[in-house]
Simulated assay, not measured.
Amino acid sequence: MAYEGMIAETVSIVGDKNQPITAYAARPLGPGPFPGVVLIHHLPGWDEWYREATRKFAHHGYAAISHNLYHRSGTGDPGDVAAKVRAEGGVPDSQVIGDTEGAVQWLKSQPWQNGKAGVFGTCSGGRHTFLYACHTKSIECALELWGGRVVMSKDELTSKQPAAPIDFTANLACPLLGLFGNEDRAPTPEQVDRHEAELKKHGKTYEFHRYDGAGHGFFYYDRPMYRIEQALDGWQKVFAFLKKYTA
């Protein structure tokens, strides 16, 4: 068997407003160059699932990084930190955009990276993925998995989330992959319809795949919401999409 290995470690990157934040990076051993993927974690936080997903991308030949959007709220158990962040009304959208741009630029500056990168996120990270993709020209593709609150009513807007991501669709500057469960309530199938209609209206390049028998979080093997057949198919679509635009 051929030798196989990877390096995975916590690093410090420059986030929004030039503030340092932590991130978890993983890549195959060797000189590369490797295509890149930036993972935007979900509402439950910078947790074990996201570390494992980061290593999964490295196993498949990618240089991957998952930055800690909750860094400024302290360290400790990811669930406790996430609860504190939720109590504070979440993190500002503008800060997420700045932190993600910092992660992309850190990744693209590495000598073993091929200069191309996609952004991947689930749940709130899916929302942030789409939002970020509408505010940058730094990435080659975006992968939004069940992004809740891309479509928002006026009464859902806050000072930290002052606009619905769907309102920025015209600015999307890269191809988009969307994976959704038809039993999800955030986003609902009707919200996914609106999301897709807006992409069509503006002539964007996208692929949406919707799964019967799946709700929110159907990739999460450590939770009852896991759906193995839909998740396996979804991962195949993730890697095919990344390969198309970042290899």
Rank of each mutant, 00 (worst) to 15 (best):
M1L: 11
A2S: 12
A2P: 12
I7S: 15
T10I: 00
V14N: 10
V14I: 14
D16G: 09
K17I: 00
T22H: 11
Y24N: 04
R27W: 03
R27G: 01
P28Y: 07
P28K: 06
L29S: 03
P31R: 13
P33S: 08
F34E: 05
P35K: 03
P35R: 01
G36V: 04
L39F: 08
W49D: 14
R51F: 14
E52S: 11
E52I: 13
T54S: 02
K56T: 12
H59T: 11
A63E: 06
H67D: 06
L69N: 08
H71N: 10
G74K: 09
P78R: 10
G79L: 05
K84E: 10
E88V: 00
G89V: 10
G90V: 00
I97H: 01
D99H: 07
T100H: 08
T100N: 13
E101V: 08
Q105A: 13
K108F: 03
S109H: 04
Q110Y: 01
Q113I: 06
N114D: 09
G115S: 10
R127D: 08
H128P: 00
H128V: 02
T129L: 09
Y132T: 05
T136I: 10
S138L: 14
I139Y: 02
E140Q: 14
W146T: 04
G147C: 11
G148E: 07
V150H: 01
V150S: 00
M152S: 06
E156S: 09
T158A: 14
Q161Y: 13
A163F: 15
A163K: 14
A164T: 08
I166T: 08
D167P: 04
D167C: 07
T169I: 12
T169E: 05
A170P: 05
N171I: 11
G178Y: 03
L179Q: 13
N182Y: 02
D184M: 06
R185C: 03
A186R: 12
E190F: 03
Q191S: 09
Q191R: 01
V192I: 15
D193Y: 02
A197W: 00
A197L: 06
L199W: 15
L199Y: 14
K200W: 05
K201A: 12
G203M: 10
Y206L: 10
E207H: 13
F208E: 05
H209S: 08
H216E: 04
F218W: 11
F219H: 12
Y221W: 10
Y221E: 05
M225V: 15
Q230N: 12
G234F: 05
V238W: 00
F241I: 03
F241D: 01
F241Y: 09
